[in-house]
Simulated scan of single mutants.
Amino acid sequence: MVVYNPIWLQLIFYIGIIAFPCLSGYMFYLAYEAFSKTGISGTGIFLFLGVAVAYISYIGLLLAKFVPAKVIFDESQFTVEMQGTKCSYAWSDIASIKNYENSQILKLFDSNGATIYVVDHMTPGYKPFAEKVNEVIGI
């Protein structure tokens, strides 16, 4: 099985990765402007939106390196192809995972704490890959 973002989805991810930090900054700017005109009562919604979009930006930055990655997996192993390099891992090489359930990002770590792969739920092939990871980790 293969987990891979087609070009059109990569483009959407990259637009979001660039746009969301800008949008967050703009929300904070609007909060500043509202504060100078109406005081604290006018800033709440802009601050809330700024923080929410900043969180989405953080998740996007976690994912950014792995947007063009391609993962090929079977019952015994998985291979991460990224920027012309291939790294093969046995399923047992996954020491831990971090599942960002709200943003639906799955992050895999090796025994040294290094990130092996980060995948979004929209990536084609995500569901069978996530099921296999959860089976291996024992979730």
Results as ranks from 00 to 15, higher is better:
Tyr26Asn: 15
Ser41Cys: 11
Glu131Val: 06
Leu49Pro: 01
Leu30Gly: 01
Ala31His: 08
His121Met: 05
Ile15Ala: 09
Leu9Asp: 03
Ser103Lys: 13
Val51Met: 10
Ile94Trp: 00
Ser41Phe: 06
Tyr100Trp: 14
Thr43Leu: 11
Val118Asn: 07
Asn102Leu: 07
Gly42Glu: 04
Val80His: 03
Tyr126Met: 05
Phe129Val: 07
Gly138His: 08
Thr85Gln: 13
Phe109Tyr: 13
Phe109Asn: 11
Ser57Leu: 05
Met82Cys: 01
Trp8Tyr: 13
Gly113Met: 01
Gly60Leu: 07
Met27Gly: 08
Tyr14Val: 04
Asn99Ser: 14
Glu75Ala: 09
Ile137Cys: 06
Tyr126Val: 08
Gly50Asn: 02
Ala34Arg: 05
Asp93Pro: 03
Ile12Ala: 13
Met82Val: 12
Thr85Ser: 14
Met27Glu: 12
Glu81Val: 15
Leu106Tyr: 05
Val80Asn: 04
Ile45Trp: 01
Leu47Pro: 03
Gly50Asp: 00
Tyr100Ile: 13
Ile116Val: 07
Leu61Asn: 09
Val71Ala: 06
Ser88Lys: 06
Trp8Asn: 05
Ser92His: 03
Ala90Ser: 07
Phe109Asp: 01
Tyr26His: 10
Gly125Met: 11
Ser88Thr: 15
Lys98Leu: 11
Trp91Phe: 03
Ser92Leu: 01
Ile17Tyr: 00
Ile17Arg: 04
Ile105Gln: 06
Leu106Trp: 10
Gly16Ser: 07
Gly50Phe: 00
Ser36Gly: 11
Ile137Asp: 01
Val118Met: 06
Tyr26Ala: 14
Asn99Arg: 04
Met122Val: 07
Met1Ser: 13
Leu47Ile: 15
Phe35His: 15
Ala34Cys: 13
Leu61His: 10
Gln10Lys: 15
Ser24Pro: 12
Gly125Phe: 04
Ile12Phe: 12
Gly60Asp: 05
Ile12Cys: 00
Tyr55Lys: 15
Ala69Gly: 11
Leu106Gly: 08
Leu108Lys: 02
Gly60Pro: 12
Pro128Cys: 05
Pro6Phe: 05
Ile97Asn: 09
Pro68Tyr: 03
Phe13Glu: 02
Ile15Trp: 09
Met1Trp: 14
Leu49Thr: 01
Gly16Thr: 10
Leu106Ala: 00
Ile94Met: 00
His121Arg: 10
Ile97Phe: 09
Pro124Phe: 00
Asp110Trp: 04
Pro21Phe: 06
Ser76Gln: 11
Tyr89Trp: 01
Asn5Cys: 14
Tyr117Ala: 05
Thr38His: 15
Ile12Gln: 09
Leu49Met: 13
Asp74Asn: 12
Met27Cys: 14
Ile105Gly: 10
Asp110Cys: 03
Thr43Asp: 03
Lys98Ala: 11
Tyr117Val: 04
Tyr58His: 10
Ala34Met: 09
Leu11Cys: 04
Ser103Ala: 12
Lys70Pro: 02
Lys107Pro: 03
Asp120Trp: 04
Gly84Val: 07
Glu75Trp: 01
Asp74Pro: 08
Leu106Cys: 03
Tyr29Arg: 08
Ala64Thr: 12
Val3Asp: 04
Val51Trp: 11
Tyr117Trp: 09
Cys22Lys: 03
Gly39Lys: 13
Gln77Ile: 04
Ile17Ala: 11
Leu63Ile: 13
Asn112Cys: 05
Ile17Pro: 02
Asn134Val: 00
Gly25His: 07
Phe35Gly: 12
Tyr100Ser: 12
